[in-house]
């Protein structure tokens, strides 16, 4: 079990430190935007907008309704999927920013963004899919390589 966790945590390192630094930039920007803006607007964190009236780890009242509208399994468990999606953005953003358990949270973010792209924004056209697509591309490579040199994952596994 410990070996598996270590394997999941240990990042792949590129040959030169500046290559890791370059790939860390989109990860840091996306992590920050997810937790400071997109996620915290619908998931209760200490920095959520005060007027949104969200308590800690609470999902916004409207989100399960939106999720239920996707139909199928989302309609069967709208609260679960809404909570998981909002958690992935708001809390996943913190972990992405810190580069801690990067693969695990990147996978959650990637799945959330795929749902956002194909279930929420598909009918609204490519332009509206772009934000979710941007996060998805970053989460895709961080779910493969992990945090790189510039993250807690590297510090705890080296």
């Amino acid at each position: 079990m410990i070996t598996l966790i270590k394997k999941l945590t240990k990042p792949l390192l590129l040959p030169h430190w500046y290559q890791d630094l370059l790939l860390a930039i989109p990860r840091l920007v996306c992590g920050y935007l997810l937790t400071a803006d997109f996620g915290s607007a619908k998931f209760g964190l200490p920095w959520s907008p005060k007027d949104n009236n969200l308590h800690l780890f609470e999902v916004a009242f409207w989100f399960p309704h939106d999720v239920a509208a996707y139909g199928g399994i989302f309609k069967m468990f709208p609260v679960f999927f809404a909570w998981m999606g909002a958690f992935s953005e708001a809390v996943g953003g913190i972990f992405l920013l810190a580069g801690y358990q990067t693969r695990l949270f990147s996978t959650l973010i990637l799945l959330t963004m795929l749902v956002a792209m194909f279930m929420q924004q598909w009918q609204n056209g490519l332009w509206n899919m772009l934000p979710a697509m941007g996060f998805a591309w970053v989460a895709l490579y961080t779910s493969v390589i992990g945090s790189g040199r510039f993250g807690i994952d590297h510090l705890v596994t080296k």
């Binding site: 209760g44 009236n53 969200l54 308590h55 780890f57 609470e58 999902v59 916004a60 009242f61 399960p64 468990f77 609260v79 679960f80 809404a82 909570w83 998981m84």
Partner: peptide, 13 residues
Amino acid sequence: MIVLFTSSCVQPT
């Protein structure tokens, strides 16, 4: 437990 936990975490209206 996950379903029950998340069900109780929706903002009241």
